[in-house]
Design a binder for these strands. Structure first.
Length: 320
DNA sequence: AAAGCGGGGCT
DNA sequence: AGCCCAGCTTT
């Protein structure tokens, strides 16, 4: 949960999660969809899919026991260099450097490294250096101290050099250039995409389909959706909905729009309602049942709740 | 090596 | 509204 996510944001999810899945066996036994539903709203959903797969693999490959080596952890889904190193160093006291963003920032400043922190080259340099200084008798405490120094003292914008134990060894601070580090990678521009949604409610049921495992909101259930790199006119949309979902009807009405901002993408969500005139390639799911136990995208969730959003006040009578 | 994948907080 | 934050997988 803490991959790319702050402790504060993760806590409520974590508490619900360990209550429902108190041990490895219960997590491994659960269907992936239930894991996704508990993850709903936390983002980066590949983590949830990977965690579900990881638990199952720990049962089948490792007999329900946690491995104790870096290489074994690295072989599990969703476990990369940082997570593998953090687990084996903190839990099993193995001397492997654990480089998260906090540690990367600390190392970048200590060594005044000009290499961009996100690059594989930086990771190689930091790993080499940390391997030389990690104390074999207390690698777990060493890694934890480095992580917490980054999280609590060597802050991204306002490093607290005055109260930093490492200040005497810090090249960047000695040069008075602590704020020039870490050097960040160039970030690619955000591309815009348009998701056109069709929505109706029929006898208390709403249309849903499962998004592919790969891609945005993978594995979540969504309203019928036409994706394009530009906004589409209603006539184009009706053709597309008919072709892709066999969804046809009358009284098409543009309800409004909302926007989701991802790291690398701006998703413009445009909502339409309609009166369907035939069954299509989607499931008709009881609205309340969907809310109760289906993993839903934010768009599907809002329509299922009948909430106001974007610039429209309420759905037409026949819809909700 | 680069692209893809969320959502929250701060300004 | 725009910027900052941040690990793993796939291509």
């Amino acid at each position: 949960m803490l991959q790319q996510t702050t402790v504060k944001q993760a806590i409520p999810y974590y508490l619900r999660f360990v209550e429902r899945f108190p041990d490895l066996a219960s997590l491994a036994a659960a269907p992936q969809e239930e894991v996704l539903r508990l993850w709903q709203g936390l983002g980066y959903y590949s983590r949830a899919r990977n965690l579900s797969a990881c638990a199952k693999e720990l049962m089948s490959r490792f007999g329900g026991h946690f491995p104790e080596t870096y290489e074994e952890w690295l072989s599990l889904p969703g476990v990369g260099p940082y997570t593998a190193a953090a687990v084996v160093s903190l839990a099993f006291n193995k001397a492997v450097p654990a480089i998260d963003a906090n540690v990367a920032r600390v190392v970048s400043r200590l060594m005044a490294l000009k290499t961009p922190v996100g690059s594989p080259q930086f990771r190689r340099q930091a790993t080499q250096w940390l391997k030389k200084i990690i104390p074999p008798e207390a690698p777990g405490r060493f890694n934890e101290a480095l992580i917490d120094t980054g999280a609590l003292v060597c802050l991204p914008r306002e490093p607290q050099c005055d109260r930093c134990l490492l200040q005497p060894f810090c090249k960047a601070s000695q040069m008075g250039q602590q704020k020039e580090f870490p050097v960040k990678d160039l970030r690619p521009e955000k591309k815009s995409v348009w998701f056109h949604y069709a929505f109706f409610e029929w006898e208390g049921r709403i249309p849903l389909w499962k998004r592919p495992e790969r891609g945005i909101w993978g594995g979540f259930y969504d309203l019928p959706c036409i994706e394009a790199n530009k906004p589409l006119a209603l006539e184009e949309l009706r053709t597309a909905f008919s072709k892709v979902y066999e969804l046809e009807g009358k009284n098409w009405k543009r309800l409004g729009k909302s926007m989701e901002t991802l790291t690398h993408r701006r998703v413009h969500c445009v909502f339409y309602s309609l009166m369907p005139e035939r069954y299509g390639r989607y499931e008709l799911v009881d609205r309340k049942e969907a809310l109760r136990s289906w993993p839903l995208t934010k768009s599907a969730l809002r329509c299922a709740k009948g909430e106001n959003f974007g610039n429209f006040k309420s759905l037409p009578k026949f819809a909700i």
